[in-house]
Computed example of a mutant assay.
Amino acid sequence: MLIGVMSDSHDRIEAIRAAIEKFNSESIELVLHAGDIVSPFSVREFEKLNCKIICVTGNNDGDPMALRKFLGGFGGELKDVFFKLEVGGRRIAVTHGEWPELVEALILSGEYDVVVSGHSHDASIRKQNDVLVINPGSCSYPIVDGVVTIGNGTIAVLNLEKMSAELLRL
Rank of each mutant, 00 (worst) to 15 (best):
I3Y: 02
G4I: 00
G4H: 00
G4K: 04
V5E: 03
V5Y: 01
V5W: 05
M6D: 00
S7I: 04
D8I: 06
D11Q: 07
D11W: 01
I13T: 09
E14A: 07
A15R: 04
A15E: 11
A15T: 04
A18W: 01
A18N: 13
A19E: 08
I20R: 10
E21T: 13
K22L: 15
F23C: 07
F23L: 12
F23P: 02
S25P: 02
E26H: 10
E26N: 06
E26M: 14
S27T: 08
I28R: 05
E29W: 01
E29S: 12
E29F: 00
L30T: 03
L30I: 05
V31I: 03
H33Q: 09
A34T: 09
A34H: 04
G35I: 05
G35Q: 06
D36H: 06
D36F: 05
D36V: 07
V38H: 09
V38R: 03
S39C: 11
F41G: 02
F41Y: 14
V43Q: 13
E45F: 14
K48N: 15
L49Y: 06
N50L: 07
C51R: 04
C51L: 04
C51I: 03
C51M: 08
K52M: 13
I54L: 10
C55R: 00
V56F: 01
V56Q: 02
V56A: 06
T57G: 08
G58D: 03
N59T: 01
N60D: 05
D61N: 06
G62D: 05
G62V: 04
G62H: 05
P64F: 03
M65S: 13
L67C: 06
L67N: 01
R68K: 14
F70P: 00
F70L: 11
L71W: 11
G72W: 09
G72H: 10
G73S: 15
G73A: 15
F74D: 12
L78S: 09
D80G: 01
V81W: 03
V81K: 12
F82L: 15
F82C: 10
K84H: 02
L85A: 11
G88H: 06
G88P: 06
G88N: 12
G89I: 08
R91W: 05
A93V: 04
V94G: 05
T95L: 09
G97V: 04
E98S: 14
E98N: 11
W99E: 15
W99N: 15
W99P: 00
W99M: 13
P100Q: 13
E101V: 10
V103F: 09
V103E: 14
E104D: 15
E104V: 00
A105M: 12
A105D: 15
I107Q: 11
I107N: 11
S109Q: 12
E111G: 12
Y112G: 12
Y112Q: 11
D113N: 15
V114N: 09
G118S: 12
G118P: 07
H119A: 06
S120D: 02
H121V: 03
H121S: 06
H121P: 01
A123L: 01
I125F: 04
R126P: 02
R126M: 03
R126V: 03
K127P: 03
N129Y: 02
D130F: 03
D130Y: 01
D130L: 06
